[in-house]
Design a binder for these strands. Structure first.
Length: 490
RNA sequence: GGCGGCGUAGCCAAGUGGCUAAGGCGACGGUCUGCAAAACCGUUAUUCCCCGGUUCGAAUCCGGGCGCCGCCUCCA
């Protein structure tokens, strides 16, 4: 398979060739643990989750590293506001992160290093930079000399003159040059700090990612990911620090996901226009959120609206219902071995090409939107087969259904959807609807039997009255040959 | 101001030189049904922001407009 990956460094798609055949090392910048995660964090997490799932699916042995920044200005400020320690705050927010990610079905990374547990590695890297003349100590701080690294700006497409124009000299900083950035910050009174050759202090934000990524993946590794907003200055600084220290290329492929916007504007903490993952999940199924996040190419902006989540929910419902119906057909006790019609055989053959199509789409710079298109085509095809099976039953449908469902599940694992059985999914949706309706199961069943009695007597007025009143409460009735079924207003 | 991206149906969204412009949501008509619902079938972009150009051929390449967004400061 020819995997093509858009590399921010080259500004184009290029063939993916890992350093070691069959193996991929990938590092993704995780969160700064000081607050609840919002949909933007969910996008980054889900995008790289799917990338990792896909790489594994096509046979790569992947080492996935995602860090936690657990010491930083924002953490210190927030901890002070709340009157708790930075450690307590970080622990709490990391717990929240795991709650959100577990709910979203985002797999754990293989290694999840924290900055505060890698102080020695960070100090060693800074010392290496000082020794090579790329960094200098100044009043307890250590800074990186940007001008000593001529390739600075290679990732973000900037040059030093442009950067100088925008650079500000902040009073109180001890930099020799406004372009320089901090590797180590001396401790202010009351701040958490660690011993270092330059006195008590703490690491700057950028250096931790260089130290931790190289520790676990080597001095040159395959993929480094993160949100597009990290490209400058964070990733630019990582390149400078790492390559200055090692003299080697740091990362081969830089992969950046686009933002989640809301009413066309970037969702961010600073604008205050964010919606937390927790809030979304209190209203929508986690897989609906995944579907929404994967509905557009990962590099493009993605606009959030409640409507978009409702659409994703409808689409997800359709997938689960299709599998549910297929399972039901497969479990029907049919003796007759009526041969399957030609068009059914063709449709089944079509469904079986799904994996291949999805893998092709994903191999083209992880085109989840295209891949999902194929997935939905297969869902419709499956429904078509179910329709045929219901019209002219045959025992031969059982194996066919099982094969089709297996194909769908195999692909849905890449997206991280359909992780529940359709029975679980539908039961949960129904129970949610029931509790929202304010009725007990007994009350509902009483109404249903009353309606069935009315229908038996062809009292359509009464029957429709009951159906309408339930519909207003979010419960939909379906009169099927095997009796009346109720379900959530899916 | 510098750098980068985007503009495809009612909405969301693939497609970057040539098969009928994927797919989702919605809407409408049909099959089914007592009527519905679900599902299926059909319809919903002769055309891809506008104007020029290149080409046998362009949504796709080039030039020029218009509009929107992001980065340049912490941000996934």
């Amino acid at each position: 398979m020819n995997l093509m990956v858009y590399n921010t460094l080259k500004r184009k798609k290029e063939p993916f060739e890992p350093i070691n055949e069959g193996q991929v090392g990938i590092y993704v910048c995780g969160i700064t643990a000081y607050d609840r995660c919002h949909i933007g964090h969910a996008r980054s997490a889900v995008v790289f989750d799917v990338i990792v799932r896909f790489l594994r699916k096509i046979g790569y042995r992947v080492t996935f590293v995602r860090n936690f920044t657990d010491i930083d200005d924002k953490i210190i400020n927030r901890a002070n506001e709340e009157g708790i320690s930075t450690k307590e705050l970080a622990e709490r927010e990391i717990d929240h992160f795991y709650q959100d990610m577990d709910a979203l079905g985002v797999l754990r990374a293989d290694i999840e290093p924290r900055a505060t547990e890698h102080i020695a590695d960070i100090i060693a890297l800074i010392e290496r930079l000082i020794k090579k003349g790329f960094a200098y100590e100044s009043g307890g701080d250590v800074y990186f000399s940007v001008r000593k690294f001529p390739r600075y700006g290679m990732l973000s497409g900037r040059n030093l003159e442009e950067l100088m124009a925008g650079a500000r000299i902040v009073p109180g900083e001890k930099k020799a040059d406004p372009l320089d950035f901090a590797l180590w910050k001396s401790a202010k009174p009351g701040e958490p700090s660690w011993e270092s050759p330059w006195g008590l202090g703490r690491p700057g934000w950028h250096i931790e990612c260089s130290a931790m990524s190289m520790k676990y993946l080597g001095e040159t590794f395959d993929i480094h990911g993160g949100g597009l907003d990290l490209a400058f200055p964070h990733h630019e600084n990582e390149i400078a620090q790492s390559e200055a220290a090692t003299g080697k290329q740091f990362v081969r492929y830089w992969v950046h996901n686009g933002f989640v916007t809301i009413k066309g504007e970037k969702m961010s903490k600073s604008l205050g226009n964010f919606i937390t993952i927790k809030d979304i999940l209190s209203q929508y199924h986690p897989e609906a959120l995944r579907l929404f996040l994967l509905s557009k190419h990962y590099r493009s902006p993605l606009d959030y609206s409640p409507e978009s989540l409702r659409e994703a929910t409808s689409a997800l419902d359709r997938c689960y219902k299709a599998v549910y119906e297929a399972n039901e057909v497969a479990s029907m006790a049919i003796k007759k071995q009526r041969p399957l019609p030609e068009h059914v055989k063709e449709t089944v053959a079509f469904i079986k090409t799904l994996s291949e199509k999805v893998e092709m789409a994903m191999a083209d710079d992880f085109n989840t939107a295209k891949a999902l298109g194929s997935f939905f085509e297969a869902v419709r095809s499956l429904n078509r087969v179910v329709e045929s099976a219901r019209k002219k039953p045959s025992a031969l449908y059982k194996d066919v259904m099982d094969e089709c469902v297996k194909e769908l599940f195999s692909v849905s694992k890449i997206f991280g959807i359909l992780s529940q059985t359709p029975e679980e999914y539908i039961a949960k949706r129904n129970m949610d609807a029931l509790s929202a309706s304010g009725l007990s199961l007994d009350e509902l069943e009483t109404l249903l039997s009353e309606r069935n009695e009315a229908r038996r007597q062809k009292d359509w007025k009464r029957a429709d009255e009951i159906r309408d009143s339930l519909s207003k409460k979010g419960i939909i009735l379906k009169d099927t040959p095997s009796g009346t079924k109720w379900s959530a207003d899916l």
